[in-house]
Amino acid sequence: MRDARPAALGVRPAALGVATATTILLAGCSAPVQLPDPPVDDATRALCTALVADAPATLLGSPRRATTGSLAVAWGDPPITLACGLPQPAGLTPTSQCLEVNGVGWWSQDGVTGTVFTTVGRAAYVQVGVPNSYGNTGDALAELASVVADHDTLLRPCVG
């Protein structure tokens, strides 16, 4: 299964290393963050489009940035990323440990330069990548919980 974590944290497989390096280099000059849209069905596209449109203008005090995909959002430098409609990540199972933040369940994966969080028990997978430089990653999840809950239907609660 393909690794679907956001490229901005440098946690994709080596085959995509060039894209990751490009993202990191471009981030310094405020170019759009490289977050291409995954293939999604019409219902997921509608859900993700609404979620992205309602995402906050700032996150952890960092302004929103342009992205290459329409189903993603980024803030700050280095970018905090939110990508919607990604496939289920490898390693995420019904029994994976789950952290609940303001009513939204998340599964976490530590990367080299940050942590990637994936929603659990929702209609679409939403992933948030938070670089280590932002410190307490739970603060980003707390700020994003309401927009995720408003748009991504809860199918089963977090049980971890």
Score class of each variant (00 low, 15 high):
17 G>A: 12
37 D>W: 10
15 A>H: 02
49 T>D: 06
33 V>M: 07
41 D>A: 03
67 T>M: 14
30 S>R: 13
87 P>Y: 01
36 P>N: 06
29 C>M: 07
42 D>T: 02
21 A>K: 06
39 P>Y: 01
16 L>Y: 09
22 T>I: 10
38 P>Q: 11
30 S>L: 08
86 L>C: 01
21 A>I: 01
67 T>K: 14
75 W>T: 04
39 P>T: 10
28 G>L: 10
45 R>V: 01
46 A>L: 02
32 P>Y: 05
35 L>Q: 06
46 A>D: 04
28 G>Y: 08
54 D>T: 02
38 P>S: 08
60 L>D: 15
49 T>Q: 08
43 A>M: 01
12 R>K: 11
52 V>H: 02
78 P>W: 10
62 S>T: 09
75 W>F: 12
23 T>P: 05
66 A>E: 15
65 R>T: 14
34 Q>L: 13
41 D>K: 00
63 P>Q: 12
28 G>A: 10
86 L>M: 08
77 D>T: 13
67 T>L: 15
88 Q>E: 13
67 T>A: 14
60 L>K: 07
39 P>V: 12
45 R>S: 07
49 T>F: 02
30 S>Y: 09
31 A>F: 08
71 L>F: 13
59 L>D: 00
46 A>K: 03
18 V>I: 13
68 T>F: 09
80 I>T: 11
82 L>P: 05
27 A>M: 03
41 D>S: 02
12 R>V: 08
17 G>E: 06
61 G>I: 07
36 P>Q: 05
49 T>C: 03
17 G>I: 04
48 C>S: 03
50 A>E: 08
16 L>R: 09
70 S>V: 15
69 G>W: 03
36 P>A: 02
77 D>R: 13
29 C>S: 12
76 G>P: 13
33 V>I: 13
48 C>K: 08
25 L>G: 14
46 A>V: 01
53 A>P: 00
89 P>Q: 14
26 L>S: 09
79 P>I: 14
69 G>M: 08
55 A>T: 13
69 G>E: 09
87 P>H: 03
78 P>Y: 10
83 A>S: 07
42 D>H: 01
57 A>W: 02
18 V>T: 08
85 G>Y: 09
89 P>Y: 13
74 A>G: 09
50 A>H: 06
24 I>R: 12
23 T>S: 15
39 P>R: 11
13 P>V: 06
56 P>Y: 14
88 Q>Y: 01
73 V>W: 11
63 P>T: 12
28 G>E: 08
77 D>H: 05
35 L>S: 04
80 I>E: 00
43 A>F: 00
82 L>E: 12
42 D>W: 01
77 D>N: 10
69 G>Q: 11
61 G>L: 05
20 T>Q: 15
37 D>R: 05
52 V>T: 03
80 I>K: 09
72 A>L: 10
12 R>E: 12
44 T>W: 02
87 P>E: 05
61 G>E: 06
51 L>D: 00
35 L>H: 04
67 T>S: 15
15 A>C: 05
17 G>D: 05
66 A>L: 14
76 G>V: 14
16 L>F: 10
65 R>P: 10
45 R>C: 03
47 L>H: 01
45 R>P: 02
48 C>T: 02
82 L>S: 09
35 L>D: 05
24 I>A: 15
57 A>F: 02
65 R>K: 14
79 P>V: 15
73 V>H: 12
63 P>A: 15
44 T>A: 11
